[in-house]
């Protein structure tokens, strides 16, 4: 099994002496390349924190995160940002889009920030897959929640990152839309050969993954 992402003994504690919250408690896991891994756990079990550290958004108190063998926290902030820009795509639960940009611009934003030119055909293809070709110029304020999340998915795909990290991307959606978004995400990711790590507390959704990791109180319970 090829590991594309690996955490080694990650630790993140919050709070002071008496009220320590062990968000991530010596967690080590490996994510297989090209597969759909879901991380489940109750609220407050530390999964978001874990995901954020895996994506380099948060620095751990101790431990390492290796992406493609590279210790990402050994990079300087600037380099880390560039690394993140090119290797990782994020999808959050809500407010993923920049309100003042239209759908197209939101999708190509990471590419633009990287200074690369947009592969128009590829982006159009993604747009077709998510069924938003009609709404290229629409502003996020006019889109429904499901539509917004779909655009977020498209954005994560457009830059062709190696890893897509999704933090409860369908948490705010109704079941039908949820199903759609997940189906879409899963098929895109497998077609383009990307790795998907998704946090969810919905077991129905989790089962669609190739592998489920269960987190409880900051520790991996089942994997």
């Amino acid at each position: 099994m090829k590991k594309i992402l690996e955490t080694q003994n990650l630790v993140k504690y919050y709070g002071s002496q008496n009220n320590v919250v062990k968000a991530v408690d010596h967690t080590s896991l490996q994510i297989e390349a090209g597969k759909f891994t879901s991380i489940v756990g109750r609220s407050g079990s530390g999964k978001s924190t874990l995901l954020h550290m895996m994506g380099g958004l948060d620095r751990p108190d101790s431990g390492k995160v290796l992406i493609e063998g590279k210790d990402i926290f050994s990079l300087k902030d600037e380099k880390l940002a560039v690394f993140r820009r090119r290797k990782i795509g994020f999808i959050f639960q809500s407010y993923n889009l920049i309100p003042s940009l239209n759908v197209w611009e939101n999708i190509v934003l990471p590419i633009g920030l990287d200074g690369r030119k947009v592969d128009q055909d590829f982006v159009r293809e993604i747009l077709a897959r998510i069924g938003m070709e009609e709404k290229i110029h629409a502003l996020p304020g006019t889109l429904s929640g499901g539509q917004q999340q779909r655009v977020a998915v498209a954005r994560a795909l457009a830059a062709r990152p190696a890893i897509i990290l999704a933090d409860e991307p369908t948490g705010n959606l109704d079941s039908k839309t949820e199903l759609e978004v997940i189906s879409m995400l899963k098929s895109c990711v497998s077609e383009y050969g990307q790795t998907l790590v998704m946090i969810t507390h919905d077991e129905t959704i989790a089962q669609m993954a190739d592998r489920i990791i269960v987190i409880e109180d900051g520790k991996v319970v089942r994997s």
Binding site: S100, L101, N102, W104, E105, V108, L109, I111, G112, L113, K117, V118, Q120, H137, A138, L139, T142
Partner: peptide, 8 residues
Amino acid sequence: SRKGYQNM
């Protein structure tokens, strides 16, 4: 809607 740019 907004016309927007091709490249950001």
